[in-house]
Amino acid sequence: MENEAGVTSAADGLGGIAWNVVGHTYTPKLHSPNAFIWHAVVPADTFVPPHIHPTQDEWIVMLEGELEVEFGPEKHVAKAGDTVRMPMGIAHGIFNRSGQTATCVFGVAPSRKLFDLFKVLDGVTDPAELVRLSALHEVDFLPPPDQA
């Protein structure tokens, strides 16, 4: 799978994988030491709490719908066709407050430990466990505002 030339069809993920991470469906499309790319289906009223990737750049390419991306107090709406850049070390949260499902492609570079994190997060529903596992895989969640 790693570093192979080819095409991953729109309907497929690597090895038939589809993960449920924070209520979203993540389907990996490319995984190598240099980059990890996945397709995401983000249902209405779901979100990824503010977090930091200290060792990776991350981006989103919006396909359908819209997402609100927060960088600290700044809020930006990304719509179909938009690209969102989230450089390493910059706290960001991703929220679907649109009332409709959004689809997008996420990517990180370099891959680091995120692919392995998604494998262990598949189906995890306990927020404390999500935070604990994420910290072990180089993703640091920020405390909720009332606990900061």
Rank of each mutant, 00 (worst) to 15 (best):
E138T: 05
T103A: 11
K113D: 05
R97C: 03
H24N: 15
D122E: 08
S134I: 00
T8K: 01
L121G: 04
A35S: 10
G23P: 01
P33R: 02
V22E: 05
E74W: 04
D12T: 07
A10D: 14
E4M: 10
Q147C: 06
A135E: 08
I37G: 05
I60D: 10
D82E: 11
N34R: 13
G89D: 13
E58N: 09
E68Y: 12
V7F: 14
S32Y: 03
P145F: 08
D82F: 10
K75C: 11
D82H: 15
A40Y: 09
V131A: 07
A148T: 01
R85F: 12
F106E: 11
D82N: 14
T125E: 12
R97L: 03
D140L: 12
P28A: 02
L67G: 10
A10Q: 08
Q147Y: 04
A35E: 08
F95R: 08
Q100G: 10
R85E: 11
P144R: 04
E138R: 01
D146M: 06
V61D: 08
T103N: 07
N3P: 00
F71L: 12
A40K: 11
R112C: 04
L117C: 03
A135W: 05
F47K: 07
A40N: 15
K75R: 15
V48Q: 06
A128N: 07
S32A: 13
G89L: 03
